[in-house]
Design a protein around this nucleic acid. Structure first.
Lengths: 241, 241
DNA sequence: AAGTGGTCTAGACCACGGG
DNA sequence: CCGTGGTCTAGACCACTTT
């Protein structure tokens, strides 16, 4: 049907893509009630568990909604949620085929200021390491990184040398798994950023801010500022998966 | 452990969050080999299928990697993938507590130009409807929408009246399920956009471009331009789900 | 009250891949 | 080879929700 050339291996994958294509092709419109699990099991000559696995997956992906006693229904299409891959800057630069370089511009350590507390949701007793770095692609500045690291949560940061290692990579080793929130905006370059990036003041820049927690503790806040004409974020969405 | 106050209901949920918290807390470091399914089933006093469900989910979320004969291992933390919710503009405006309004500025229909083909991956025989619209939050312009719709794939578009209904909502009803690719950039406002948005020319704007396919056919291309100081995209990431 | 999905079990067979 | 995960089954009981 509307299926490219996916190599169907397992039984539940076949059933999944079969039902999926009926939905995305419009054969089963939003609101349509799908056959019950027992009936599908009969149709596909398999056990109910196998069908259930498929239906559970379809429900998780948002393609159908399920209600006990009522049945399973094709969802009304809703707000799209796209997956945004946030890569490491070094990886990003190298995937462009350009040599990567990094420079630490400034470093300080002190108690959290009011501004810090606003950005990071921490109290004033918290110690912070603040960094300003520039990432280069070839000779050109690729982006500016402003970073705050919670030294109370990650005490090793006080001894860390960020002269050669970008703080993002260092943190990834210190705090393996985390939760993050990203904010994406367009802003005009400040005088300082414009100087670091080699662009004119006020020119459009893409700003990605990230706050990171681990075990519910704030770990780091970072703001990446990219020249607007040199960087694009890409996100993809498919009903599958 | 590091778990907030999630109300654990089912057995596999309990096992899942138990293992999850061991990983995110660092008790099980990246590279650590988890107990085998049979052993976990023994530990939790349940069947292997239940453990398998949990482990499969952990693998899908990227927290662990699994290899036959070798076992299951805590993953090395990789590039973060954050989920970006792309909302309908009307919903977005109303969620800010502001009255929503919409205006169609311009409409045309013709064969695809070279520029159109570059943006949409279509051939020159394709007919396109091109629209220019402005979305308002209260009295202020909220964003400008430039849109191209594939009239060969969605012939009903020729009769559609976009004077009162934004094309996004109309399309959602015509083409219920689709694949989309988003590109996010910062650009300086062009003279035309600046006029429509009531900002100064060259001021930073957030641009979200979306290409949409259904059944592998290109359906629509749209570019939303938001004043940079009035709009932020938010994306969240958690190891769960 | 009845029917549906949600969960769980105790098996089973197979394919992959490390030793 | 043979241990591991991947898949599948044919049951079972329960919770929820609509009737």
């Amino acid at each position: 049907m509307a299926n490219g050339n996916a190599k169907e291996t397992t039984l539940h994958q076949k059933i999944l893509s079969d039902i999926e294509s009926r939905i995305v092709s419009g054969e089963w419109q939003p609101g349509f009630r799908l056959p019950f699990e027992v009936d599908l099991a009969e149709q596909y000559q398999c056990s109910r568990m196998t069908v259930n696995k498929v239906m559970t997956q379809l429900a998780k992906s948002g393609l159908i909604e399920r209600h006990r006693k009522a049945g399973s229904f094709v969802s009304q299409p809703r707000a799209q949620s796209a997956v945004l891959e946030i890569h490491d800057i070094e990886t990003e630069v190298k995937s462009l085929g350009l040599p990567y370089a990094y420079a630490l511009v400034q470093r300080s350590e002190r108690q959290a200021s009011a501004e810090d507390r606003r950005l990071m949701d921490i109290n004033e007793a918290t110690r912070l390491v603040k960094l300003l770095c520039v990432h280069y692609a070839g000779k050109k500045p690729f982006c500016v990184e402003e970073r705050r690291i919670n030294a109370s949560a990650v005490p090793e940061v006080s001894d860390a040398d960020f002269a050669t290692t970008p703080p993002g990579q260092w943190l990834l080793r210190q705090v393996p798994w985390s939760t993050a929130e990203h904010r994406i905006q367009a802003v005009g370059a400040s005088a300082e950023v414009a100087r670091s990036l080699g662009v004119t003041k006020g020119s459009a820049c893409l700003v990605v801010e990230r706050r990171t927690w681990s075990n519910l503790r704030p770990i780091t806040w970072v703001r990446f500022t990219y020249p607007g004409d040199r960087h694009t974020l890409v996100a993809r969405f498919t009903p599958n998966t």
